[in-house]
């Protein structure tokens, strides 16, 4: 297994480099210029050209590419054009926020989705099953930014204006007094801010996971070994959770890896709506401002996430299904 993981990781290096190279040329050859954001009559064309020189953009593209590769080899992603800070510093600051949000959402989504899926499978065609299916489809088909806006309106604006007992902040990852809070209060404050964005992301995911779990459970429940388990007098709980669920989860678990990249695209909207300082919004802003170093750095991180996500899926597959071996 270790050999397999190492081999896959090594194999990913040319893949990630290839992706980065393509992105490098696409963003650099796209129309527009990082100096455009200063466009105004009070800026002389000479000053604009000088900005390009100061940013290193006066060099031909192949030289820039080689330099970029050289710096990358030393772990240097350059300095952002629009934020004027080293890209590695910015990513270090923002990536944990995105990971916190994504993993929380994935966790909530899987717990919620699997539980719901089991319930629906066990009570197939019951009223509960139908209601859960309809509600699930409702969330599944909802664009995440719209759901997020509705969450803001409902649980932040209306909750506050109408004086509900529960109220959640609509933006940011912490209160402005965060620095003055005790460690326990800090955790509570962070979770309080995490609730709306994580729920918005998780609901959409959970709906899909519930469908997968339900289908997979229904398939397993009709297998002979389940009948055998029941016949030998095992309690229904053991039959469902120990025998059926274990097998039914095999296809569902692998979704973890496949959902990771999907999540990162989903967080762009969520991060925007909830002013969550994270990678998704960073990269989108960078694209609009032609901030090449951030686009490159962010894409690299995302590419690695996707590679890791796929690897996790493969590994999990082997873990839950003994028939699969990577040798």
């Amino acid at each position: 297994m270790t050999t397999f993981i190492v081999r896959r990781l090594l194999g990913a290096i040319p893949l990630v480099l290839g992706i980065a190279t393509i992105i490098f040329f696409v963003v650099n050859l796209a129309p527009g210029d990082p100096a455009d954001r200063f466009s105004s009559p009070s800026m002389s064309p000479e000053a604009r050209e000088q900005i390009r020189v100061n940013l290193g953009l006066d060099q031909p593209i192949h030289i820039r590419y080689v330099r970029w590769l050289g710096a990358l080899a030393q772990g240097d992603l350059g300095v952002s054009f629009s934020r004027n800070r080293p890209v590695t510093d910015i990513i270090q600051e923002l990536l944990p926020n995105t990971l916190l949000l994504s993993f929380t959402a994935i966790g909530v989504a899987f717990v919620l989705g699997i539980l719901l899926g089991i319930l629906q499978a066990v009570r197939q065609y019951s009223l509960l099953d139908s209601i859960a299916s309809i509600v699930g489809l409702f969330f599944y088909s909802m664009p995440s930014f719209w759901l997020a806006l509705m969450m803001v309106l409902l649980f932040s604006l209306f909750a506050s204006v109408w004086g509900w007992p529960i109220y959640f902040p609509a933006s940011d990852i912490q209160s402005i007094d965060y620095a003055f809070l005790s460690p326990f209060e800090k955790v509570r404050d962070r979770l309080w801010h995490l609730t709306l964005p994580a729920t918005s992301l998780a609901l959409v995911l959970a709906a899909g996971i519930a469908r997968y779990t339900r289908a997979s459970m229904l398939e397993e429940i009709r297998q002979d070994f389940v009948r055998t388990a029941r016949a030998k007098g095992l309690s229904e709980r053991v039959v469902i959770f120990k025998h059926t669920l274990r097998n039914a989860l095999i296809p569902v678990i692998t979704l973890v890896g496949l959902y990771l990249p999907f999540l990162f695209s989903g967080t762009v909207f969520i991060e925007t709506v909830f002013a969550w300082p994270g990678m998704g919004k960073l990269v989108v802003d960078a694209i609009l401002q032609r901030d090449y170093p951030i686009i490159m750095g962010g894409s690299l991180v995302f590419a690695m996430m996707v590679v890791v996500g796929n690897l996790v899926a493969d590994v999990l597959y082997a873990v839950v299904d003994p028939r699969i071996r990577y040798d």
Binding site: T104, I106, G107, V108, V111, I166, R188, L191, L194, T195
Partner: peptide, 18 residues
């Protein structure tokens, strides 16, 4: 991290003050 996720739902109910 996943554990934190599990806690979130409970915390939401008590993080009530403005």
């Amino acid at each position: 991290l996943i554990l934190v996720a599990g806690l979130t739902v409970m915390m939401g109910a008590c993080g009530g003050e403005g």
